[in-house]
Design a protein around this nucleic acid. Sequence first.
DNA 1: AAATTTGGTAACGAAATGTAACAGGCCGGG
DNA 2: CCCGGCCTGTTACATTTCGTTACCAAATTT
Lengths: 241, 241
Amino acid sequence: MPHILVVDDDREIRDLLGKFLGQHELRVTTAADGVEMKKALEDWNIDLIVLDLMLPGDDGLTLCRNLRAESDIPVIMLTAMGEDVDRIVGLEMGADDYIAKPFNPRELLARIKSVLRRAQAMPDRGAKPEGTAAGFAGWRLDMDKRELHAQDGVLVPLSGGEYDLLAVFISHPGRVLSRDQLLDLARGREAQPFDRSIDVQVSRLRRKIEDDPKEPSLIKTVRSGGYMFTPAVKFEGGENR
Amino acid sequence: MPHILVVDDDREIRDLLGKFLGQHELRVTTAADGVEMKKALEDWNIDLIVLDLMLPGDDGLTLCRNLRAESDIPVIMLTAMGEDVDRIVGLEMGADDYIAKPFNPRELLARIKSVLRRAQAMPDRGAKPEGTAAGFAGWRLDMDKRELHAQDGVLVPLSGGEYDLLAVFISHPGRVLSRDQLLDLARGREAQPFDRSIDVQVSRLRRKIEDDPKEPSLIKTVRSGGYMFTPAVKFEGGENR
DNA sequence: AAATTTGGTAACGAAATGTAACAGGCCGGG
DNA sequence: CCCGGCCTGTTACATTTCGTTACCAAATTT
């Protein structure tokens, strides 16, 4: 599920977008500065950035150029005025698309879909530098086929949701992920008042990938914090990050 | 040098574009009707199509959909009005970009460059001069004869609908396609309230192309999302990268 | 130690999916 | 024009998936 980062100072716009993009992973931030941006790009697996040009100063364009230079994540630019100059400069600066405010939300959604479609079909674009497979402790997760193989190559059947959850864990190793984050990242929805679905899903996943689900070694629970995936940090040989 | 095909009834526009793009090392040809289109795509090595929506009837959209389903050549749409409906429909129909007339030629150029840049980085996009055939996991789909051949060359009989569906899947590898999209792309109709026809058709197709229909490896189902075609990229030895 | 909070998971049910069976439409050969 | 096959949409039912709830245990607090 695509993760979208919206950078905009206008709360109204952010809310509007949030509403229309509900079906996607959506991160909204006012973070105009590079520091928070970088963090956001790491924490969440951002696939697409919707960037408001009208940030203080001409940070918008600079930011866009930096993003393009560093991350190669697709960018859609918003701007208040539909002046040709702006849009041309923007496109030449590397933005993947451009929309002038005020815009029709449905149009933005359509463009987002379009850009994501392209990025997905293009191997070397998007925020997923990893290949088509990720491994941990002898296991192999085939990202193409959405399949998990055990050490001996035997296919371990995972439901779609279990795969999504595991994929999230794998892309955030050694980091504590709150239930909210997991729910958001793996399911793309908000937590409800007494939502235990993540607990249950973790339980189901453990049953399939842990040697002893009662004594989990891969997915640790962090009381009052969430869960943490720790691949192969087993013994002292411990190479890690 | 990239070849660009401009499809527009308006001679004035064609001349303008031809003149404008001509001086930018872009070869421009014009063709008005659908018949000529097909010929043009075969005769010349078209890398990009600039398509005017305002063709008689809604041929523009239909044409765009067909192009996207079959050829996978990038499309930029032109339209007379900046009507939201048009542009949304267009983008959802698979166009890669959109510009409203009257447009600034420099903007069109910027967008053309942008699209070409993307297409270049994307292996399976862009003009395909010869083979009207696509392959996946040892299979070969003959687009001319609308026939599917197995690894050993044996012809696997597909019904027309099955072929259409498979063709849509093949032209959108690794992308989740909703039932609505599939219905639209493969059948060209709208979904009805409790429409399960896609499910059934997928089931029928799986029966013919999957080793084990119970454990599909080519056409994955994405719960509450749709289906995804993943051309088997199996590295059994599971080593490098 | 009792009370409270937090996590694990079995069980239930709603929703989504797979697919067999049925039916209507279309087409080519009598 | 009729008949018998395909093809494909619809329906019905089985199965799977996943969120919710409930209850228990472990951890933490008071």
